[in-house]
Design a protein around this nucleic acid. Sequence first.
DNA 1: CTGGATCCTTTAAGATACTG
DNA 2: CAGTATCTTAAAGGATCCAG
Lengths: 127, 127
Amino acid sequence: MARTDRKVSYSPTGKLADVTPEMAAAGVDAALRLLDGRWKMEILFQLFGGGVLRFSELERAIPAVSQKMLTQHLRELERDGLVTRTLHAQVPPRVDYALTAWGEALCPVLDALLDWAARRPAQPAPA
Amino acid sequence: MARTDRKVSYSPTGKLADVTPEMAAAGVDAALRLLDGRWKMEILFQLFGGGVLRFSELERAIPAVSQKMLTQHLRELERDGLVTRTLHAQVPPRVDYALTAWGEALCPVLDALLDWAARRPAQPAPA
DNA sequence: CTGGATCCTTTAAGATACTG
DNA sequence: CAGTATCTTAAAGGATCCAG
């Protein structure tokens, strides 16, 4: 079988069955792009577990983030379907952010990633 | 309980038990940094399943990557313990790349990520 | 309170040429 | 064959000011 036709057969029952390396890589890249952003993990972990936080609460919980980036990342997470944004029509305005069911479902995946990272063998001491 | 003391208790048996959101986010960020790079997924998926490829074979398998980026990403993956680099002392030189056991162990994690991404609810049609 | 708009800096990535 | 070195470009992120 030619190299370019090689399939990833590592997970016979999983998503990686019978796809080319290119297809698998593209799929994972697309998934990772949803999570790409300096502060997205901070935001997600503030919301995991059913948390409902206002914009200003997220600002306080993540002191290092700028308003611009917090807004931008929240908008991306909302657009991508991980978080919901609820605007309460009152003065002053109030906006609540929470995870969607699909967003919550990311938690065990990140847990698995963390578990993998924890299994990393000891590295040679840096010179 | 104060917000800043809230724990992520989603995975009682997992790595996310009893850590603050900040700690969890930092850990996941560190893990994701190992995978960050335009071509790393392409490289990894070429090697998943026990593949052993030479530099030029990777170049052919991933036509769009430049020599510079291929070298750079391979070096990072080697430094981070995901791939091994074997230099055969001969002329012309020959270098083989393969995954470490830990690198191979990433495959099921990426499979889980892909499975999560596939469960994404349908988005409203873009205007 | 919850942002939007603008400007500036940093970093990743691509193009190209050259070498043991 | 398997890289390095240098230059240029594109994208992400940060700082600051303004507004409903």
